[in-house]
Amino acid sequence: MAEPDRWQTWAREEKPLVVHDEVAPVKAMPPLLRRRAQPLGRAALEVLYAPSLDYANQPIIFCSRYGETGRCLNFLQTLAEEGKVSPQEFSVSVHNATPGLFLIAKQCRAAVTALASETQLALSGIQEALAQIADGAPSVILVFCEEPLTPLYRAFVEDDEPVGFAFALEIAEGKDYQLVCDEVPTKASTETPFNPSALSLLRFALDETRAVLPLTGAEDWKLLRAAPEAGHA
């Protein structure tokens, strides 16, 4: 979808993502670097290269719950069966490999932070972004990417992502949003785990009718949208 209003409808109506089987081409990246990226990494790279992002050497915060589990499993199986692993696969099996490839291609020495967290990853990403901004970064690029777990691992998690995705947000100081933490949680810790997909962050950013995005099950941490008259960032 290229049209902004279609994305807004998608966010407001909580529509599922449409599955595309084709792998992101990442034509902007030199082929010798691109060949090291797998489908999830390529999706994230396509987002980083997006003209609308207009990347200008900001620090990158790369967030993914599990990263490329297919690559890691394949790698572990080869190690078990043959006792040798592919050096090429090994070199890109770390969580920060994808933003690393991007910065090598850009010949840029911006800082990269890679976060993995089974729960509350959206909150962790925002906290990290705000911490870096408080530390002096004028803006940061916050990337989220997920794909369905490789089947062998799927039995071990309760809420897998059904569809792969990648998106990036540029976070800068302003007055449009506020991250707050209530001392007294709105809800007692619930029995049912609350683990919002990073997509909820994208939906919240797009859906201007919503004022609050809870980021934890107890709803102590939340993101607030400023009322329109409060001004812009």
Partner: peptide, 13 residues
Amino acid sequence: LGLDSIDALELGV
């Protein structure tokens, strides 16, 4: 061809 040191190791394997 523009290969690098990781490629050399991969090729060795």
